[in-house]
């Protein structure tokens, strides 16, 4: 068996220089990484910032992060997929997070979720084909005193029902 050498790859620095030049969000991310002095243990903090900037963690962002922190790509990907908060897929225009914590659950959060699923034909973690809405669930947002709670585009809304939720969703999703 003969060993065939892989073709030479472009230098990472060159590759990422073009990313930096083309998108100022990378500049902001770079500044953030510098704030953490490129410390490898800041990986999760950096990914938080990256997701805030880009909306989700696309491959190039992960590669860039790995390069900046001098970490193997497999480590960055392993961390990004371990935590629920990080998403590697783009989100829809709007998000609807149904809290499935215990308090919300005993007060009927599953019925709310079923109603949204029935209305949109998507499952938690998915986005409608028209990219209008991403449906997500949470394990508990700590709003148990006002259960069941649903988060619409980042706003926690108390005492929801299937009806109120659908009313909100219907404003976003085509009939």
């Amino acid at each position: 068996m003969t060993t065939v050498l892989a073709p030479p790859k472009p230098q990472a620095a060159v590759r990422f220089a073009s990313l930096l030049a083309g998108d100022k969000r990378y500049k902001i991310l770079e500044a953030h990484i510098k704030k953490f002095q490129h410390r490898q243990d800041a990986l999760i903090e950096v990914l938080h910032k990256a997701q805030e900037l880009f909306g989700y963690l696309e491959d190039d962002v992960l590669r860039y992060t790995a390069w900046q922190l001098k970490l193997p790509a497999s480590r960055v990907y392993g961390v990004a997929t371990f935590y629920h908060f990080f998403t590697l897929k783009p989100q829809g225009e709007h998000t609807c997070v149904v809290c499935l914590g215990t308090a919300c659950y005993v007060k009927g959060a599953n019925k709310i979720l079923a109603a949204v699923e029935g209305r949109t034909h998507i499952r938690p973690g998915e986005t409608t084909p028209d990219n209008k809405l991403s449906l997500l669930t949470a394990r508990c947002i700590g709003a148990c005193g006002i259960a069941p709670a649903v988060v619409y585009d980042g706003t926690v809304t108390p005492r929801q029902t299937a009806e109120t939720t659908l009313a909100q969703i219907n404003q976003w999703v085509a009939p």
Binding site: G101, T102, A103, R139, A143, C144
Partner: peptide
């Protein structure tokens, strides 16, 4: 990291 669903004391 108050993860227990139904708990919001620490928050």
């Amino acid at each position: 990291d108050e993860g227990d669903p139904g708990a919001f004391m620490d928050r």
